[in-house]
Design a protein around this nucleic acid. Structure first.
Length: 572
DNA sequence: GACAATGGCGCC
DNA sequence: AGGGCGCCATTGTC
């Protein structure tokens, strides 16, 4: 059963029961927020699928009121998928003129003040964004259902839309719950690395002394190590010929300035990216609440906004600490993308290499290459489109051992080079290249085309080929991860903490295990200690379930590394 | 002063 | 001739 929910311009909530084709089976009801909450709680008994425009705008209101839902259908996210998918290319939805569903729903980020994001994830005061009527949302939903029903493989898209929508619920819940974070531990860590905290704009002691050493070694008392131009000129003056100040370029050189400079860069990065200012900005009441953006990356991966949540450096993970009486279950899908590639291409040899073991080790054991590192470099090269270096040299051996897998990546690359799209396992298609790409290609076929024109077109075509080559693997991996998380969430909901559990600090989630972090192929569950083993079982079982959802009976293992820890840095 | 581009680096 | 991101400081431009 579907329940369409929305909000009117004057702040009322609407609920409309719909049948399986999106037709209403009862009239819309207009409700106050309190009535709406009651309606949601009552309706959840029947596990309805809530259909709404934008989970990220409506669901936080429910969470703030202590209400969760089981299933959703996010019209905005699902529209984006169906609009692009090659599986629904001839549908009314995909062939219609662009509408507000294509761009009008994008809400500008508010002031990035994490303290307020929880409870005023707001709605436009004047109701402009909500001027959309419920009938518009209902019409959109019907178009979506029709597009899926008419496509050649509706099962794939149904699963994708359900997974994407579950992801939207999870994203809102994780933002709400937040990642447990101890500011006093973070502060100690920063003080140890950088010296005591100083006023903004000043360098902490250790950075300042490194800066002095750098100036001494370069014989220039003025040089600012934060300025690339400055630094590059100074380096060249002391005879270091280089074209950039990148750390890996510096590492190759011999000079007394190199060591302090590399150290400076490392610490300066820590200070600017995850220093005290970051901590004050993003940690609220012992929780880090980044905003997750499902579907924020073209491939279907998530993006985040605020705090750089997907780039949390290992350096600061020691500050991620479970509440007293609770644990963090950190689970990481081992060699996810190669396993996805093996399954996508039905390459049983590659799947066998990963059966019950580290897939790269399995490749070595099969005699394809000599070391795990070679196996990894070669695989990444196949998926990213490397042509030179060690990776390029190893590729032919990989191609002999795993012809099906390598043929799939090559085919995806060739499609991209021709400007065609590729489609993931569940039906997310890559975007078409833009106008300027097409113009550059056309230019190369022009009668008067120069060698430079052709060179430019070839290089650009190869760039797009690398993109589509990676898209199909990265995007399918993102789908696996969505299914994995959705399954974890579904099973966690059924757990209740045993008697005597110390409540956690998050309302709504204070007595039950819940997801608190997601990083492409890794999740963290915050759980009462008494449920650790059950959570580990759930996470592990969910990986197998996700594999079956995507690839049926194809015999590929999705192995996890699972670590139950007090602090995140203890995992791995 | 506001904004955009760039280099650089963190994560997968 | 290595895919996808977000964020920061510096620098360039209006």
């Amino acid at each position: 059963m579907y329940l369409l929910a929305g909000r009117t311009g004057n702040g009322e909530f609407l609920v409309v029961p719909l049948d399986s084709t999106g037709l209403e089976i009862a009239p819309a009801r207009r409700l106050s927020f309190a009535e709406f909450l009651g309606e949601v709680i009552a309706a959840e008994e029947g596990s309805p699928r809530w259909v709404w425009e934008d989970t990220s705008r409506l669901y936080p209101l429910l969470l703030a009121a202590g209400v969760r839902v089981q299933r959703g259908h996010d019209l905005r996210l699902c529209h984006a998928i169906l609009r692009q998918s090659s599986l629904t290319a001839t549908s009314d939805l995909a062939t219609a003129a662009p509408s507000r569903w294509d761009n009008g729903l994008v809400v500008l980020p508010e002031e990035p003040s994490p303290g307020s994001t929880l409870f005023d994830l707001g709605f436009a005061e004047d109701g402009t964004a909500e001027a959309s009527s419920d009938s518009d949302a209902q019409a959109e939903f019907r178009l979506q259902l029709a597009a899926v029903a008419a496509c050649a493989e509706p099962g794939r898209l149904r699963l994708l839309l359900a997974a994407e929508s579950a992801g939207a619920l999870i994203a809102a819940e994780m933002q709400f719950a937040g990642l447990p974070w101890r500011t006093e531990v973070h502060d100690r860590l920063l003080t140890r690395e950088l010296g005591p905290r100083v006023a903004p704009g000043l360098r902490p002691e250790k950075l300042e002394s490194l800066a002095r050493r750098i100036r001494t070694e370069l014989g220039d008392p003025q040089v600012n190590p934060d300025s690339q131009q400055d630094l590059l000129r100074a380096l060249q003056r002391v005879g270091l010929s280089m074209s950039s100040t990148r750390a890996w370029e510096l590492q190759k050189l011999e000079h007394p300035v190199i060591a302090p400079l590399l150290e400076y860069k490392k610490l300066a990065r820590l200070l600017s990216a995850n220093g005290w200012f970051w901590m004050d900005t993003w940690i609220v009441n012992g929780r880090f609440h980044p905003e997750y953006l499902p579907g924020g990356v073209v491939t279907g991966r998530w993006a985040t906004r605020g705090g750089g949540a997907l780039q949390l450096p290992k350096q600061v993970r020691g500050a991620v600490i479970a509440d007293d009486g609770w644990k963090l279950v950190v689970a990481d899908a081992a060699q996810l993308e190669p396993r996805i590639l093996a399954a996508l291409s039905a390459d049983t040899a590659m799947a066998t290499a990963g059966r019950g073991t580290d897939l790269y080790a399995g490749i070595v054991a099969s005699g394809v290459v000599e070391t795990r590192d070679h196996a990894k470099v070669a695989m990444l090269g196949a998926m990213y489109g490397a042509t030179t270096g060690e990776s390029g040299r190893l590729l032919p051996r990989l191609a002999r051992a795993y012809p099906r897998a390598l043929a799939l990546t090559e085919t995806a690359a060739r499609a991209g080079e021709r400007g065609e799209t590729v489609t993931t396992r569940l039906g997310r298609s890559s975007p078409r290249p833009g106008e300027s790409w097409l113009a550059t290609q056309a230019q190369a076929y022009h009668p008067g085309a120069t060698d430079a024109d052709e060179g430019r077109a070839r290089s650009q075509a190869r760039d797009w080929g690398r993109f589509t080559r990676n898209f199909i693997v990265q995007g399918s991996a993102a789908e696996w991860a969505l299914c994995w998380m959705a399954e974890i969430r579904r099973e966690l909901r059924l757990l209740r903490a045993p008697e005597g559990t110390v409540p956690g600090a998050s309302p709504v989630f204070s007595d039950a295990p819940h997801l608190v972090f997601f990083l492409h192929d890794e999740v963290i569950v915050h759980t009462p200690t008494g449920l650790v083993e059950e959570v580990e079982r759930i996470v592990t079982r969910a990986a197998a379930t996700a594999g079956r959802h995507l690839f049926g009976d194809f015999p590929v293992d999705f192995l996890l590394t699972v670590a139950t820890v007090d602090s995140y840095d203890q995992a791995k």
